[in-house]
Simulated scan of single mutants.
Amino acid sequence: MLQHRAEFDATVTFRNGGALQTQGFRVDVPHADVTHADISALFVASLGLLMVDRVELQRVRVFAEQHKGTRGGPSDTTALPRPGARERLVELSHVITDGMITYPGLPGPEIRPYLTHEQSRDRYAPGTEFLIGSITMVGNTGTYLDSPIHRYADGTDLAGLPLERLADLPAVVVRTLDSGQRGIDAAALAGYDVAGRAVLLHTGGDAHWGTPGYAVDAPYLTRDGAAWLVEHGAALVGIDAVNIDDIAGEGPGERPAHTLLLAAGIPIVEHLTGLAELPPTGARFTAAPPRVAGFGTFPVRAYAAVPAVEPHDHTRSAGWLPTG
């Protein structure tokens, strides 16, 4: 069987400071059409790097050659999934509680019982009881997803979104929390392979969730950043902040990121949390709302599946470790 390897220069930056540069590094790859994100993940695993924030590749060349058994690569026999192991699921959504405020100026949800356990006892056999709850809320509650009709009257509603845009998407995490910049522009995105992927903007804005500071000088995606994601084929874009646009920005009510992304049919997930628990690449992201016709925004249970592996020597082989 024809096998392939990749050669490249790489610059690695770490979440706890410092950087690493390599020239002419080679790793085994599974096929000739491997993406830069996949090569980056193989590179990180091959060196056993920890606390990786970002990998930038240059001068990438994929060529036919027999595998050398790169650690963590397709021919490595020392880092295989544990027998019966499943992926680790990471929660990425906020809990919705009665009266909580998600977005300034919008009402919090009203959560009430329609039928309590006690009230239901007269309707069922002895010992059988149920709770039927009632919730009144705006769609922009908790962690939610925007569909194109949220911005455009003739856009696709929640019921019309294909599952391929919502579930089991390969994810790439863009970390900007230590950049010193509120706006995430095209330059901050340029090193990432985003085609067909859920692009998750890890800004650290969720640290202020539930406080007045959550909406003050919040991180956001700039107009040229949104245009870059459209041009490069992102499947979905999410952010762990109050809005994907700058709500204190240039002019009253301007929403260029919503405008460009939703015009291109790219769903938006706002108010994510827990993105620090994801590796830069390799996770798969899901954020699926109910199929509500004529509705543009609704809460989601956003989560990511992270592969579970256990190396032969019983140490972690991944180049990334969750925080906490």
Results as ranks from 00 to 15, higher is better:
residue 2 L to M: 09
residue 4 H to Y: 15
residue 7 E to I: 09
residue 9 D to M: 07
residue 13 T to H: 03
residue 21 Q to R: 14
residue 29 V to P: 00
residue 30 P to H: 02
residue 33 D to F: 08
residue 35 T to V: 04
residue 35 T to R: 09
residue 37 A to L: 03
residue 42 L to A: 09
residue 42 L to C: 03
residue 46 S to Q: 06
residue 49 L to E: 10
residue 53 D to P: 02
residue 68 K to D: 13
residue 72 G to V: 06
residue 74 P to R: 08
residue 75 S to G: 04
residue 78 T to H: 10
residue 80 L to C: 06
residue 80 L to R: 14
residue 80 L to P: 06
residue 81 P to A: 03
residue 82 R to W: 10
residue 83 P to Y: 02
residue 85 A to D: 12
residue 85 A to I: 05
residue 87 E to W: 07
residue 89 L to K: 11
residue 90 V to D: 02
residue 98 D to L: 02
residue 107 P to G: 01
residue 108 G to Y: 01
residue 113 P to F: 00
residue 116 T to M: 00
residue 117 H to K: 09
residue 120 S to K: 04
residue 134 S to A: 15
residue 138 V to I: 13
residue 139 G to F: 00
residue 140 N to P: 01
residue 148 P to H: 06
residue 148 P to V: 05
residue 151 R to P: 04
residue 151 R to Y: 12
residue 152 Y to F: 15
residue 153 A to G: 11
residue 160 G to H: 05
residue 160 G to P: 06
residue 161 L to G: 01
residue 162 P to M: 02
residue 167 A to R: 05
residue 167 A to S: 09
residue 167 A to I: 07
residue 168 D to V: 01
residue 173 V to R: 02
residue 173 V to S: 01
residue 174 V to P: 06
residue 180 G to F: 07
residue 180 G to V: 09
residue 189 L to T: 04
residue 190 A to T: 13
residue 194 V to C: 04
residue 197 R to K: 09
residue 201 L to S: 08
residue 202 H to W: 13
residue 205 G to M: 06
residue 207 A to L: 15
residue 207 A to Q: 14
residue 212 P to N: 07
residue 216 V to S: 11
residue 216 V to C: 09
residue 217 D to M: 13
residue 220 Y to A: 04
residue 221 L to E: 09
residue 222 T to A: 12
residue 224 D to P: 13
residue 226 A to Q: 05
residue 226 A to H: 08
residue 232 H to P: 09
residue 235 A to I: 03
residue 239 I to G: 05
residue 240 D to I: 07
residue 241 A to F: 06
residue 242 V to A: 15
residue 242 V to S: 14
residue 243 N to W: 07
residue 248 A to H: 12
residue 250 E to K: 10
residue 253 G to R: 04
residue 260 L to W: 14
residue 263 A to D: 15
residue 263 A to N: 12
residue 263 A to Y: 11
residue 263 A to Q: 14
residue 279 P to V: 04
residue 279 P to K: 04
residue 282 G to S: 02
residue 282 G to R: 01
residue 282 G to P: 02
residue 285 F to D: 01
residue 287 A to N: 00
residue 288 A to D: 11
residue 289 P to D: 00
residue 295 F to W: 08
residue 296 G to Y: 01
residue 296 G to F: 01
residue 306 V to A: 01
residue 306 V to T: 00
residue 308 A to M: 12
residue 309 V to P: 07
residue 315 T to N: 09
residue 318 A to S: 10
residue 319 G to C: 03
residue 320 W to K: 00
residue 324 G to R: 08
residue 324 G to H: 08
